[in-house]
Simulated assay, not measured.
Amino acid sequence: MTLPCIIDARRFDAGAHLPFHIGDERVGWIRENDVARLARWPDVFEIDGDAASARVTLAPRFDTVDARSAALGSVIGALAAQGHIPGWRDETYAIRNAFDAPPLAFIERAASRFFGTMTYAVHLNGVVEYADHAPQLWIARRSDTKATDPGMLDNVVAGGIGWGLGIEATLVKECWEEAGIAEDLAREARAGRIVHVLQSLPEGTQAEQIFIYDLVLPADFVPHNQDGEVGEHRLARIDEAARWIEEGAMTVDASLATLDCLLRRQWIDEDACEGIAAIFEPPTL
């Protein structure tokens, strides 16, 4: 079994980016051609191109969360208007390197990949168990109008964690919006592992921690999307889901979340997933 998702999840060339700093803390990665765009705002960004210390740093005069957020917000608005930040969401993300860390600034969700800042998401494996035959998984197909990965296969529930929401609160919210799973049932989900993704994408860098959950769904339950972000749902055999991962039909994020479920439940052999252990550890650069 070949697993392109594992390769893609760490397909990142640090040499093609400059680290983005707030103070002494690296909080993101900016592509070299995007660094040139930021040079238009010398009052907002300090750009050091020296090989030994190359970096982009938010000007130190922005020394509060509000000041940093305002400075970044004005730049982000201009870049979005020029088409350099696609898929505007009207959602607020915090810049923070750990989920429980205090925010250094707030930015529009769509800008997180331009700046390569750490983001957080939840993914839910919808499991159906039977007494008389093998278990199956509910798989979603993303809407063709989604800003990222349109039309690709995904977990039955998946969503980013916006500022002000916890992991479980986001899971409950996304369960209803994406699959019509009521809160009482959603709260029966059980945590899996956390996967760490660092990959280059057309819109920038995805640096993301994904909190994985499994939920055993009733055999007669059928997901119903509520927010228009899912095109359809499919009930899949384990071998079908594994084949979609191998063929690259499923998003990288969903592939890793699905593999975590299959491995933990021993529905596939870990020997068939060479290299996957690294995905559960933060990347080192």
Rank of each mutant, 00 (worst) to 15 (best):
S200F: 01
E188I: 13
A179D: 04
D184T: 00
E183N: 04
P202N: 06
Q209P: 00
A191Q: 12
L215M: 09
S200R: 11
E183S: 11
Q209A: 12
Q209D: 14
L217I: 07
Q199W: 00
A207T: 06
L185S: 06
L215R: 03
Q209F: 14
E188G: 09
E183R: 06
E208V: 06
V195P: 00
Q206L: 03
I181N: 02
V216D: 05
V195E: 14
G180Y: 12
A191G: 04
G192S: 11
S200Q: 09
L201K: 14
D214A: 08
E188T: 15
P202V: 05
R187T: 02
Y213S: 07
A191N: 01
R190Y: 01
G192E: 07
E188P: 05
V197P: 00
V197A: 03
P218N: 10
G192D: 10
G192A: 09
E203P: 00
H196S: 10
E188L: 13
A207F: 13
G204Q: 07
L217R: 09
Q206M: 06
Y213F: 15
V216P: 01
D184Q: 07
A182W: 00
L215W: 05
E208R: 08
A179E: 02
V197Q: 01
A207H: 14
T205N: 11
A182K: 07
S200G: 10
R193W: 13
I210T: 12
L185P: 05
E208L: 11
V195S: 14
V195Y: 11
E183D: 13
A189K: 09
D214K: 03
E208M: 12
D184E: 15
L215V: 01
S200T: 09
E203F: 07
A207R: 13
Q199Y: 06
L198A: 07
P202S: 03
S200I: 05
Q209T: 06
P202G: 02
E203I: 03
E203H: 10
V216T: 12
I210S: 08
D184N: 06
L201H: 13
A191I: 03
I194P: 00
L215A: 04
R187H: 01
F211Q: 02
A182Y: 03
A207K: 11
Q209V: 00
R190E: 09
I194S: 13
Q199V: 08
E203S: 09
L198G: 06
D214S: 10
E188V: 15
I210E: 12
Y213A: 03
G192C: 07
I212W: 00
P218S: 05
S200N: 07
I210K: 00
